[in-house]
Design a protein around this nucleic acid. Structure first.
Length: 209
DNA sequence: TGCCAGGCCCTCTTTAGGGCCTT
C-alpha cells in the first residue's frame, strides 16, 4: 500500500511476548490490534497464542497472562496467519514500533509471510509533538492526553486501543495546531525523522505547501 | 565463565556513552 494513504486509516497493534528479543528465541504470546478507518475503530483482533514453552514468572506477573492460559491457546502459527488476513494491505502503527515490528517480522517469517505495509511509531511521534509530557511511556501519555481507559495495561488489545486513541490525538494536534487537515501516513513517517528542535518549522513549511 | 535486545535520541558527541521505550 502506498504511504500516501491517510494516517487515520491504519492497523494499530500491540504484542505481548515472552521477552524482549525474537533473536533470542522469544515468541509472541498475545496479539491485539484495532483497524482504524477514517479515524474510527471498525475492527478488533485479539488472540492469545501458545509459544511452545513456559513463559517466565516475570512475564506472567507483568502481563497477567499465565502459562495455564497459554496451554489452551492455539499455536503462534495459527494465530499469526489469521492476523495476516486481518491486517490486509493496511499500514501499521505501534508504540515503540521497532519492538512490535521485530516480533511481527519474526512470527510471520515462521509461517512464510512478509509484511507488505509500513510502520509508524506513536512513541517517536509523541516525543516530537507532545514534548511537555513527563515521559513517553504509553500509560503516561494516556493520562497526559486524558484518553479514556479501563485501567488495563500490558494486555494486547487494551494497549492497542489506547495507542489508537493516542494516534488520533497526535493527528488532531496536527489538524488544530498546524492546520494540516488530512495528515498522510507518509507525513507521520517523515515527522519521525525530524529532530525535535525542527518540528515546528518543518510543520509550518509543510502546512504552507 | 560471563554475558545475554535493539533502535532511537541526546549530549559533557561524532574515534562515545547512556537513557528511553517495548516484554
Amino acid at each position: 500500500m502506498s504511504k500516501l494513504t491517510p494516517a487515520d486509516t491504519v492497523v494499530v497493534l500491540d504484542f505481548e511476548t515472552s521477552g524482549l528479543s525474537p533473536k533470542q528465541g522469544e515468541r509472541a504470546i498475545e496479539i491485539g490490534a484495532v483497524l482504524l478507518e477514517n479515524g474510527q475503530i471498525t475492527g478488533r483482533f485479539q488472540e492469545l497464542m501458545n509459544p511452545g514453552f513456559a513463559i517466565p514468572a516475570f512475564i506472567e506477573s507483568y502481563t497477567g497472562i499465565s502459562n495455564a492460559m497459554l496451554a489452551d491457546a492455539p499455536p503462534c502459527a495459527e494465530v499469526m496467519e489469521r492476523f495476516y488476513q486481518f491486517v490486509g494491505p493496511h499500514n501499521m502503527v505501534a508504540h515503540n514500533a521497532s519492538f512490535d515490528r521485530s516480533f511481527l517480522t519474526a512470527e510471520w517469517a515462521y509461517i512464510g509471510r512478509q509484511a507488505q505495509a509500513e510502520f509508524a511509531c506513536s512513541m517517536l511521534l509523541s516525543r516530537r509533538l507532545l514534548q511537555d509530557a513527563p515521559n513517553h511511556k504509553l500509560a503516561t501519555l494516556v493520562a497526559h492526553q486524558q484518553i479514556d481507559n479501563q485501567g488495563i495495561f500490558h494486555r494486547a488489545l487494551a494497549d492497542a486501543e489506547m495507542t489508537a486513541q493516542l494516534w488520533l490525538c497526535l493527528l488532531k494536534q496536527l489538524q488544530q495546531q498546524f492546520k494540516i487537515t488530512q495528515p498522510s501516513f507518509k507525513l507521520m513517517q517523515q515527522l519521525s525523522s525530524q529532530s525535535k528542535a525542527n518540528i515546528v518549522s518543518f510543520l509550518r513549511r509543510y502546512s504552507q505547501q
